[in-house]
Design a binder for these strands. Structure first.
Lengths: 160, 160
DNA sequence: AAACTAAATTAGACGCGACTAACTCTCGGG
DNA sequence: CCCGAGAGTTAGTCGCGTCTAATTTAGTTT
């Protein structure tokens, strides 16, 4: 589907963004990003990682030297950092609602590639406002809890 | 990337969901879904539509008869309806922040395939609470507006 | 009823991002 | 110093979702 507007950083696919996010995280935590670690963290084969790294190099997002390490260019680093920021922002937002961590993680993973700058800023502020208004988040959590209870067994019987 | 949890209705790709959403919308508004209309609305070629419809038939989501129309099965209709619901929910949520319509549309289009049931419910309630609390949305809009103004020219000069 | 036109379909191709299998390189221990 | 294990790479394939070009069908129009 084409369309897009301001939302379009489009030259980078969701897959490329995932790699850059991961490489960025590894460099931050370990000081370097090895193929084997990227592969493990992303749950894919090493061959796929090498492939993509070569493509990222072609696109000027990393600097790649065969059998040597991989380094982010400023452009690549910006993308990695931005995606991480979106990731953290969405996670924080969703954590207000008492959802289970696996669900939050999966949804964030899916959504983080599809959020424009403007929407990101809006949701950041929403998250802040929500934190200044704990009773709103509380009410939502309660309403959600109530939503699931109807399926529970009526509390009167032998639980064994 | 694997993972997924409750978020996984995974047997249907994002593309398939887009088609089902579109077919559902066309059937609702016109009573039938023609290949040429689906193609136009999705911005892709008719050949691609025929292809995908055959695949959707194989997967039991539509009933396809060559050169005749296409009809949703109950399973397909459910998916189409659900996606539409997520679409509308996300749109409503984002409309609170004064973003421009094209941005909202693009972001929603991207996000709607990546939201679990639980997250959807949570965001629905958030949207409701936001509507009961217009001053919160107002404050966010104002803060966003303020965020952009710093780039404006200082209001003292010749505007021509 | 024949012809024309618009819709639908088929055939064949492509790019992306993943895979496996086979190889090549690097580097630390002996 | 060399050599083996583990890291990295290459080659070749696959499925998905798209495309264009060519073909077939259906539904007017006359």
């Amino acid at each position: 589907m084409p369309v897009r507007s301001e939302s379009s950083r489009s030259l980078e696919s969701a897959a490329m963004e995932d790699y850059l996010e991961q490489i960025h995280a590894l460099i931050e935590s370990k000081g370097y990003a090895r193929v084997v670690d990227i592969a493990a963290n992303l749950g894919i084969s090493q061959a796929s990682v090498t492939n993509m790294i070569q493509k990222l190099d072609t696109n000027g997002l990393v600097i790649y030297e065969k059998y040597r390490g991989t380094v982010l260019t400023p452009a690549g680093e910006k993308i990695g950092r931005d995606i991480r920021k979106r990731h953290d922002m969405l996670t924080k937002l969703l954590q207000n609602f008492g959802l289970d961590e696996a669900t939050i993680y999966a949804d964030v993973e899916g959504m983080e590639h599809h959020i424009s700058q403007s929407t990101q800023r809006a949701l950041e502020m929403l998250t802040e406002e929500l934190e200044n208004n704990p009773q709103m988040a509380r009410r939502i959590r309660q309403r959600l809890a109530r939503l699931r209870l109807p399926a529970e067994p009526p509390l009167n019987g032998v639980t064994e």
